[in-house]
């Protein structure tokens, strides 16, 4: 964890193992497909389903304050807890959860580096199918940080004025417009391509083979030297549905320490459907 701007928000799998059952430390597994959680999770961890529990089920939006309070309070979390998030798909959805916990002002939330796959592949790390023991709390959100979220008008403005970095974290084929979405995805858009002015930095460039983050030096070289992200400007990250960009938002905000980074969770499934929005291809 050395040299990261905010190393305190990242914990290792070993740290989690050493702190299982510690009062005040709560584990949450966030998956797009909770089959993974059901098949086996870290002892004591509750499971959140990204699609059904972190998204408003009527309009396209993050869950509101009350729904968040109900979800996390009902899962036995309290505002003073250290909340450790981990999940499937390289922590994409856990990073989205991290972003959501920060929007709703939770003080101490951390990511387990490498996510569930790293834990799964380490021989000394236990998994269980036992449900966690939950004592529900009356969780109250006392502050919200919507400044962590970019909405479409701001993104359109940035594209026109270049006053902030736009970082497209999708695959090169999605960026170029060769494909609109990765194969098999149901959420899609009318058009392929990218937001004019965006830089292509696929999310996966931030991680090592085992799914854990690259070192601060490597990340700085990638984002600042190779890809030309201007650290003096604000930055907005986007992908297709806002989960991979949460991962990059975490990297830029907490590992590299940029102080004005937003996640555009509308991402390509919003922008690529907007009538008359300018699009670049290639």
């Amino acid at each position: 964890m050395a040299n990261y701007a905010h190393p305190e928000v990242l914990v290792s799998t070993d740290w989690v193992k050493d702190n299982l059952d510690q009062p005040g430390i709560k584990l949450v597994e966030i998956d797009v497909d909770t089959k993974a959680y059901d098949a086996g999770h870290i002892p004591g961890a509750v499971g959140f389903n990204w699609q059904t529990q972190l998204q408003d089920q009527v309009r396209r939006d993050i869950i509101g304050k009350e729904a968040f309070e109900k979800l996390v309070g009902g899962s036995g979390l309290s505002p003073k807890d250290i909340v450790i998030l981990y999940g499937d798909n390289n922590n994409w959805f856990a990073a989205y959860g991290f972003w959501l916990f920060k929007i709703y002002g939770h003080k101490d939330v951390r990511l387990m580096n490498g996510g569930r796959v790293k834990w799964l592949n380490e021989k000394d790390k236990p998994l269980t199918t036992d449900p966690p023991k939950i004592a529900p709390t009356q969780y109250k959100v006392t502050e919200t940080h919507l400044e962590l979220r970019a909405m479409l008008p701001e993104v359109m403005d940035i594209s026109k004025t270049a006053k902030a970095n736009l970082v497209d974290v999708r695959s090169p084929d999605e960026f170029s417009g060769k494909v609109i979405a990765p194969p098999g995805m149901t959420e899609t858009a009318q058009r392929g391509g990218h937001i004019p002015g965006a830089k292509s930095v696929p999310w996966s460039t931030a991680v090592q083979q085992d799914g854990s983050f690259k070192s601060a030096d490597e990340l700085q070289a990638i984002y600042f030297q190779q890809k030309g992200v201007d650290r003096k400007k604000p930055t907005v990250a986007y992908c297709r549905i806002g989960e991979r960009s949460s991962h990059t938002w975490f990297v830029l905000s907490y590992l590299l320490g940029l102080d004005n980074v937003k996640n555009y969770d509308g991402s390509w499934t919003e922008y690529g459907n907007v009538v008359a929005a300018p699009i670049e291809k290639g």
């Binding site: 797009v32 497909d33 089959k35 993974a36 098949a39 086996g40 999770h41 499937d88 798909n89 390289n90 569930r116 796959v117 799964l120 592949n121 236990p126 998994l127 269980t128 199918t129 695959s171 990765p182 194969p183 098999g184 995805m185 996966s204 991680v207 083979q209 085992d210 799914g211 991979r244």
Partner: peptide, 25 residues
Amino acid sequence: VNDALCPAPGLGDGSINIAKSHAKA
């Protein structure tokens, strides 16, 4: 299992990890 999100580097795909989870848990 829905296996086709996006290939992650060297991590195996969903079905492999779900099976490993069952075997471990």
